[in-house]
Write a protein that binds this DNA or RNA. Structure first.
Length: 757
DNA sequence: AATAACTTTCTTTTT
DNA sequence: GAAAGTTATT
């Protein structure tokens, strides 16, 4: 295996011309194959970079693209020796090989967020933690981010300060034990366990350091601490680490990505060469100028000066709409128009938005206009309930310890094993120190009533039968039989609805996928491998199609892609930026980077749009346009009519010269509906809702109680100390410092604070 | 224990 | 306006 320097994007001669454009020091760095390299790439740069032996990316799609290029470069044969893929998939593969070093079997299950939550729910019951008061989701997120920071349960218990954190600390250890007992890994484990492995078995680390003597990481700005540690360990011996990233496109802080990794690369690797690729090959000058004006508002970033040789281009167009329906219609008409008059194919368009929920109205409009489209993300194939149910059965067959899988299917379709029976079984397992499945194997000792025993017995027999077959029979046949015997087929058919039919078709599709996998990977394609692989797939990765369709997706999903025509929809305060994000400058900056990512997907035309009102929460609610539109360079933007973009000062001049500030806007403006809905209004007045009464209490009577220095509790942020107060009446806000969270400015009206004294 | 009918809550983004 | 939780009925 040789490492190879360079070239990169579509064709090597391109690469050569890019390199020619760099200064001599940069040229040398890019050509160098040895030593650490950091490449800072802007959006739309062609990335001249060394492809090396282990290449890690963030999406399967990026990995696939990389593979295509590498094969072109060095031939398919040699490319086979490379490991190319996402962090999670790559280390899942590694773990499969090394599982026994860690006390797992290679058939371990991979738990998604759902499974993790299911485990936590079970534990919460045992520890008498009320899932309504402390959401399993919130606790999972806390544990997940702790794991990503390499914080152990013991450390975390010491650090926990708020009530939620304390519960998370209580559950953290038991959760880890439960996973291990279930022979299962959650997403975070796929990165953590390899670190454990490398620490406990230095020879194993050495083996991989030799195998991957050259290491390449794309989208480095999105690595979290665990990924950083893995890279550091693997590169420690040869120091041949090449990272590529753009701090301005860091949009995954919420799942632990740490921009610090890219900002401090030079400190970690003092002799690193740094290359800046500042030429943009994608967008027009106007689009680039708009993007530049967005990102300039952010404070922390590496210096970068983007430029392009491309045309000046058309103005960026801002579309104003009355409602989200109207917005969708305008987008639909614009697509039609450009398609007919300018000859753009449907595949040339992308409509981007902040939240998946926004796709609905857009889909409606496109469907009505007979414009073909595809939606990426949202509910992907493998996220669907019926698919997860079948997968859970298969997981259970391969790995009977799989507790989350068992919980999922033990009574689906209903077979008379209700909550009570399940609890009895789990309690028994807990008491005897068994896995749930081991408890079921000792069913006779549990002492269930006769009818329940009989029901469980049948279930046990069925699972055991398929487990025995799982090594011999072809995987797809096994799945097909199981689906019928378990009664999933019957359950879906019984529904007798359009939806039931669709679900049934999905299940069929899953079986085909299993068959395909088995056929493609031959002898080595076991069911357990299929299950592991599939749990890491996302819709955005496998929706690979060359059909001529408009693409709908979130801005997050759009990273790394480009389209001739791009729409960024829903530029409204509270939606983009999201209400939760505006209180924290760090989060607001991330939203801004997201806007930057969205805008820089466009090659030739960029449309921005917002709606004056939007259907949310089952009500029509009014909004104001996003602050981002006030930050943008007005020179490059035109309204649909061709008029200039009205700036903030233009728009608010009429109000007697008062300066306008978004800080004075209720960030949850969406909650104030246009006209009070009667049903809601009525229930409100007689509401016995606890949270509502508490809120009123604090706001009406308690306002005076909240003064600087006092301690309060917030449902999400936990315990904090009030630093200062501002505003009066409904506008009263408090600046509060929350441990482990930071400083927040909250409106008392919405914060639901509880006074602790 | 299962189902139907009703009520409440909640929405960021994702490997 | 969906999903999850609650209550009433069989």
């Amino acid at each position: 295996m040789r490492q190879f320097a360079l070239p990169l994007d579509e064709n090597p001669s391109d690469a050569e011309s890019i390199i020619q454009g760099l200064n001599p020091a940069q040229q040398e760095a890019v050509r160098a194959t040895d030593g650490p390299v950091m490449i800072i790439a802007g959006p739309g740069s062609r990335k001249a970079r060394p492809y090396q032996i282990l290449a890690l990316t963030f999406t399967n799609k990026a990995a696939r693209e990389m593979k295509v290029r590498v094969e072109k470069l060095i031939g398919a044969e040699e490319a086979k020796g490379m490991w190319l893929g996402t962090f999670h998939a790559t280390f899942a593969r590694l773990l499969r090989r090394e599982a026994d070093n860690l006390g797992y079997t290679s058939d371990f299950s991979i738990y998604d967020t759902d499974d993790s939550e299911r485990m936590l729910r079970g534990l919460m019951e045992r520890y008498h933690i009320d899932p309504k008061q402390f959401r399993p989701r919130a606790i999972r997120n806390l544990i997940s981010s702790a794991k990503n920071q390499l914080v152990t349960p013991n450390d975390y218990a010491r650090m926990a300060a708020t009530p939620v954190q304390e519960r998370a600390a209580t559950l953290f250890g038991p959760y880890e034990q439960a996973l291990r007992k279930a022979n299962a890994m959650d997403f975070d484990d796929l990165l953590l366990k390899p670190i454990d492995l490398f620490m406990q078995h230095p020879t194993v680390l050495q083996k991989y350091q030799e195998r991957w003597s050259y290491l390449h990481i794309d989208e480095y700005q999105d690595t979290n601490h665990a990924q950083y540690t893995l890279a550091k360990k693997l590169a420690a011996r040869h120091k041949n680490l090449c990272v590529v990233g753009d701090d301005a496109q860091s949009i995954y802080a919420f799942r632990g990505a740490d921009i610090g990794n890219i900002l401090s690369f030079q400190r970690d690797y003092p002799n690193a060469s740094v290359v800046r690729l500042e030429q943009n090959y994608r967008s027009t000058k106007k689009i680039l100028r708009l993007a530049d004006s967005i990102i300039k508002k952010n404070q922390d970033q590496l210096e970068k000066d983007l430029w392009t040789d491309n045309h000046e281009g058309e103005h960026v167009v801002l579309m104003e709409a009355l409602s989200e329906k109207d917005e969708a219609q305008k987008i639909e008409r614009t697509i039609r128009d450009l398609n007919v008059r300018a000859g753009y194919g449907y595949r040339d368009f992308a409509v981007l938005y902040r939240t998946n929920a926004q796709s609905r109205s857009l889909e409606d409009a496109l469907r009505r206009g007979n414009i073909p489209y595809r939606v990426i993300g949202g509910q992907s194939f493998y996220q669907r309930k019926e698919i997860k149910d079948v997968l859970a059965y298969l997981r259970l067959i391969v790995n009977p310890s799989d507790a989350a899988g068992l919980r999922r299917v033990i009574n689906y379709p209903t077979r008379g094993i209700g909550n009570k029976t399940q609890e009895t079984i789990f309690d028994f397992a807990q008491r005897e120190g068994l896995t749930a499945w081991q408890a079921i194997e000792r069913l006779e000792d549990i002492g269930l009533p006769g009818r329940a025993t009989h029901a469980v017995e049948k279930f046990r027999f069925m699972i055991a039968k398929y487990a025995a077959k799982s090594t011999s029979a072809p995987a797809d046949e096994l799945a097909r039989e199981l689906i019928i015997e378990a009664g999933i087929l019957g359950d879906l058919r019984k529904e007798n609805t359009q939806e039931g039919l669709m679900r049934w078709e999905n299940v069929q599709e899953l079986i085909s996928a299993i068959a395909e996998f088995a056929a493609a990977s031959g002898e080595s394609g076991t069911l357990s491998m299929f299950l592991q692989e599939v749990s890491l797939l996302t819709d955005a990765d496998n929706d690979y199609d060359d059909n001529n369709r408009v693409t709908l997706m979130t801005m997050h999903a759009s990273k790394g892609l480009e389209f001739p025509v791009v729409f960024v929809a829903g530029l409204e305060e509270g939606l983009f930026p999201l209400a939760q994000s505006v209180q924290d400058p760090k989060e607001l900056e991330e939203e801004r980077r997201l806007f930057y990512v969205g805008a820089t997907r466009a090659e030739q035309h960029l449309y921005l749009s917002y709606a004056r009102s939007r259907f949310r929460y089952g009500e029509q609610q009014s909004g104001i346009r996003s602050r981002f539109l006030d930050e943008v360079d007005p020179e490059v933007v035109r309204m649909e009519s061709g008029a200039a973009l009205k700036t903030k000062s233009d728009r608010f001049k009429t109000k007697g010269g008062h300066s306008f500030s978004y800080d004075r806007v209720d960030p949850h403006y969406y909650r104030t509906s246009l006209r009070p809905s009667t049903t809601r209004g009525r229930t409100r007045t007689v509401s016995t809702n606890k949270a509502e009464n508490e809120r009123r209490l604090v706001y009406d009577e308690g306002e005076g109680e909240i003064v600087p220095g006092i301690r309060v509790e917030h449902a999400q942020f936990g315990e904090g100390k009030v630093l200062s107060m501002e505003g009066r009446g409904e506008q009263t806000k408090a600046v509060i410092f929350f441990e482990g969270v930071g400083q927040k400015k909250l409106m008392l009206r919405f914060a639901r604070l509880q006074v602790l004294g």
